[in-house]
Nucleic acid binder design. Structure first.
Lengths: 307, 307
DNA sequence: GCATATAGTTGACTTTGTCAATTATATTGT
DNA sequence: ACAATATAATTGACAAAGTCAACTATATGC
């Protein structure tokens, strides 16, 4: 566990070194201009901000006030900005960009844009989109307002396909199951879609990505089968499984099912503990003869008290 | 089209500003140490490289030779590195990190690691993984050795689920189709999985991400139906559709199918042109009565010459 | 073996950034 | 009302970071 986070840290640091170079590359043309990186950054801020004072720049850009003062003096001398004393506070002065300043800013901006366009054009359209999307995801996750909690929602279009997709990929990797298992999962999902009112699917999402799911289908008025329970490997061991089973069991109570069962494979210790803690008992074991003879299937049942 | 790339450039620049701050945050503790960022970077390079000379550092780190020389002098004085004249080239000297240098490096490294651990620990395990994964993807796509070409492969476990998933999501968004359509797609996929030898699925991937697919199923010895043809919106208009249809048509020739047909929806002009260019003719039109009465379904057929 | 190239160093310099002191205005508590 | 304190912006003095050209020593090509 400790080495897992160390590995991630290593990868992030590697990315940081890599991306520092990329940023350096993109900023190169600014370094070739008569303005420094800091100056360009200041001009950008003055250009974009509605109202801007030296002290607000100090705060936003974490820059030394003295240093800033001199840069602003140069900007004024060059006619890029104008400073007018604030009406409400005689100490501070509002910084406004001039037409010339705007032009200069645009020039700097265009130069670094064309650098970026060059970088993007080496990628096909779709890959560009993926790149930008990945950046947005990183930005979101590292921003303080990121909601990295796991949310659970009901079924939406495409979910059944996604469930089959992840079952296919993960059960092949973990148990060597092939297309026959894939077909079996698809069939079970069709049974649900025949009459969605006779069942439900819950999808757990984190940062817009599906990280786990669970479902229930009615077998008869009092009996329901728990199905399609899967947590993405990276999200296991964090209590998400318990949360999903809880959600299902509550639903069953509401629907007055007094008997719930499920089929699983032998050997999943974490899952066994989870089922046991909800009162499930092992009721049947059989060798799997269609997908993989090594696998032992287990049936677990629980009776719910009417209360 | 032009504004699309401009928008991406804007987003990347925003990410760059954001990430520059993140990197600054992580490097903060190095700035608090008696070594500068550049010095830490140099020490890292000497520590990691098998053999290292001043000139190799100049090239890797793009640093001024004079500046580097002085930094190395200080490192030698502090006992962090040792320089021995190269056997093979009397001009250059091999830089070796000493035990003390390694300790110093580890200290700097640990400090910035702990900063990163703090950042990571605000995220759940799985989200950490997603973050690192996104970074790796960016790094891969922007590196010169990135293969951003689109590759086409055959069916693997999970693909049918993925096909259903994307159909469900995109056909709901684009045509408002609901779970009944989702079920229809699943059913068609099951028919394929019943006997995978009577059909085939091709998956187009870019940078490890599925960006489109197509399939074929045998109807009888001489007739096959083209199915599950979908290109992710961002990857449309780049010739991928043609490439996929081509792949299918070649397969049909090999299998001696002389008649291929498909069902599609009216109004997809790009698709119509594509089908026509492969010799397909519109043979049937009917209102769709199960999913959406607004939609007109079309059947297209083509006879292949035996050659 | 001479011209040229490369590895590394040094001196002189510019740019970039920091820190404390200073002036002018604003705010707060009594 | 006004003294104490806080904030906005500037300035001088300085330190750190980085650049450039000149220089020494060794290597390489013709």
């Amino acid at each position: 566990m400790e080495s897992l986070i160390q590995e991630r840290v290593m990868k992030i640091r590697q990315f940081n070194r890599f991306y520092t170079n990329i940023i350096g590359l993109i900023n190169q043309n600014i370094l070739e201009s008569p303005y420094s990186l800091a100056e360009a950054r200041i001009l950008l801020e003055i250009n974009n901000a509605a109202t801007c004072t030296a002290s607000s720049l100090v705060e936003i850009l974490q820059i030394d006030p003295g240093y800033l003062s001199r840069i602003l003096r140069r900007f004024k001398k060059d006619g890029l900005i104008e400073a007018v004393r604030s009406m409400t506070d005689g100490r501070s002065q509002i910084l406004n960009i001039t037409e010339k300043g705007r032009a200069t800013f645009r020039q700097l901006s265009d130069a670094s844009s064309s650098q970026l366009v060059g970088l993007l054009e080496q990628l096909p359209q779709g890959a560009q989109q993926i790149l930008v999307h990945n950046m947005a995801a990183i930005q979101y996750m590292l921003s303080d307002k990121a909601d990295t909690s796991i949310t659970i929602r009901r079924h939406q279009s495409g979910d059944t396909g996604y469930i089959a997709y992840r079952h296919g990929v993960l059960y092949e990797k973990e148990y060597g199951l092939d297309h026959r298992f894939e077909k079996y999962v698809l069939q079970s999902l069709i049974a649900y879609l025949e009459d969605p009112s006779k069942g439900e699917i819950w999808i757990a999402e984190c940062c817009g990505i599906i990280v786990g799911f669970i479902g229930i289908v009615e077998i008869n008025k009092r009996t329901a089968q728990l199905r399609w329970f899967l947590i993405e490997p990276e999200f296991r061991g964090g209590g998400l499984g318990r949360k999903l089973v809880e959600t299902v069991m509550e639903y069953c109570q509401q629907k007055y099912y007094n008997h719930v069962f499920l089929w699983t494979f032998k050997g999943l210790d974490a899952a066994r503990h989870l089922y046991q803690s909800f009162g499930f008992n092992l009721t049947e074991e059989k060798e799997n003869d269609t997908w993989n003879n090594q696998l032992i299937e287990q049936r677990w049942d629980v009776m719910l008290n009417a209360d």
